[in-house]
Design a binder for these strands. Structure first.
Lengths: 260, 260
DNA sequence: GCAATTCCCGTAGGGTATACGACAATTGCT
DNA sequence: AGCAATTGTCGTATACCCTACGGGAATTGC
């Protein structure tokens, strides 16, 4: 087994890449000079995924965009999976969240809101994020910075350590999931060229042919109540989704504050 | 364009499949008899995905499991994507949620808990669910039943229609996301044969080599506070995740109740 | 000059979805 | 009985995907 340098094993290799400490002390002096840099590869992959979807960020496409052979990428990255990890942590790090000594909003709710805004903006710029797994995530600087920020915010609220941890996790779960949903929604509208209203409209005969009012009385009641009197398929509407997001986050924070 | 029967267009075709109304009135009398049924195909695909992961539910594998040629599947399903939609709605329908006239827990919190339990159990049986998109979901009976149930529960709480809708969406977002995370976590432990503790342990030199205490003071404080004094990488632990789920859901419900 | 080292990348193998078209089976009509 | 119409089956081919392997190119140290 070709041991790398620190602990050996694939996990250590991945960590080294994530934290960009591939060559800790000695530079490689012998041998051919690389034509690319790791960051260039990651940036290109991200750019491709951003504009043409995650499927476009294939090894072949990335290589083509860089003007090299496909297999060349494997000198910079051990596999497609590792490249994805690097892409993820890279964009997670885009979130401008104040670190330990830096200025931050005074109110703890405003602090959470900052996390929410930055996360939503990041997902919006990189909609493919919503499709990637967050369990066993790439433990890079991007993920840790967000954890630290949310955790410190819960401390500022005055929660005891264990509870602060739970609260931070719950908030992250809710915000990340909702942000992912929003971003994916936008992506689908862009890539299919079809608005959600149009999408629901296309499914119009659902209500006409399959929907049984007796089986779904409450849904029926809610639609009939619709104040705007607009589209009756409003459940999937962009605006309702955004409202639901705000509402849920505010209620969650209410509950957390009350649990102090 | 070979029009189907109701509205034409691919959306109508998908809806017809989801609601299993492929031949509304006239049976096909002419022509060769089919050897398979749509349900058989879907069940087989679900079973494969359950035990060997979503990647194992390829068209080729499903066909092989059924003892037919790959292309035969395309007489039952227009594409892989549609098959996935059918799989999703099929398992979502497994949730035993009482309908309009049926008995249900008296307390509204217990009603939400039932939704939570059933959803978590379903995700647990079908971990591949966590990886699929929920935006523009297959609008089948499974999804509608859940919407109706949660919505009626929010009505039982006494929320006005518009707010009940927002609350139901927020709860679904949180529960579905957390349930997906849990299920995926279990799946990864099973399929890789590596517990999360072992996974974190493998990344031990993160803390030794890369982690900067000054950059992450709050995380450091929380670990040092750990009452059990056990593993210091407890953030990803199964138990902590479950605790965070309960905590977040309870706080969300607190907030919703208080907003009445 | 030459060995050692490192990077580049063509080829090949095994995976995926699915378009096309030949063929089989079943029914209805002549 | 025979033939046309209809529908189901599925082999072949195309176009992707990831990546193991190995030969060749470039650079440095001796």
């Amino acid at each position: 087994m070709t041991v790398q340098h620190s602990g050996g094993g694939p996990a250590a290799r991945t960590l080294a890449l994530l934290w960009r400490k591939t060559q800790p002390a000695q530079e490689k002096l012998r041998g051919r000079k690389p034509t690319l840099q790791l960051d260039t590869v990651v940036d290109t992959a991200v750019a491709l995924a951003d504009e043409r979807g995650i499927a476009a960020a294939s090894m072949g496409n990335v290589a083509k965009a860089l003007g090299v052979g496909t297999m060349t990428l494997y000198t910079y990255v051990p596999s497609k999976e590792e490249l994805l990890d690097l892409m993820i942590d890279q964009v997670l790090l885009e979130r401008r969240l104040p670190g330990p000594g830096e200025d931050r909003p005074a109110d703890w709710r405003a602090q959470v809101e900052l996390y929410s805004d930055e996360t939503r903006a990041t997902y919006s710029r990189h909609p493919w994020l919503s499709g990637v797994s967050t369990i066993r995530p790439p433990v890079g600087p991007g993920m840790l910075a967000a954890r630290e920020y949310l955790l410190s915010t819960m401390f500022a609220l005055g929660l005891p350590p264990a509870r602060a941890n739970l609260a931070a996790l719950a908030i992250a779960t809710y915000v990340d999931s909702a942000a992912g949903g929003e971003a994916e929604s936008d992506l689908i509208e862009r890539s299919t060229g079809q608005t959600h209203d149009a999408w629901w409209h296309e499914r119009g005969d659902l209500w006409e042919n399959y929907f049984d009012v007796d089986r779904y009385p409450t849904m029926t009641a809610v639609w009939n109540d619709g104040e705007g009197g607009g589209t009756s398929y409003g459940n999937g509407t962009r605006e309702v989704t955004a409202q639901a997001y705000r509402f849920g986050l505010d209620r969650l924070l209410d509950g957390i504050a009350a649990s102090k």
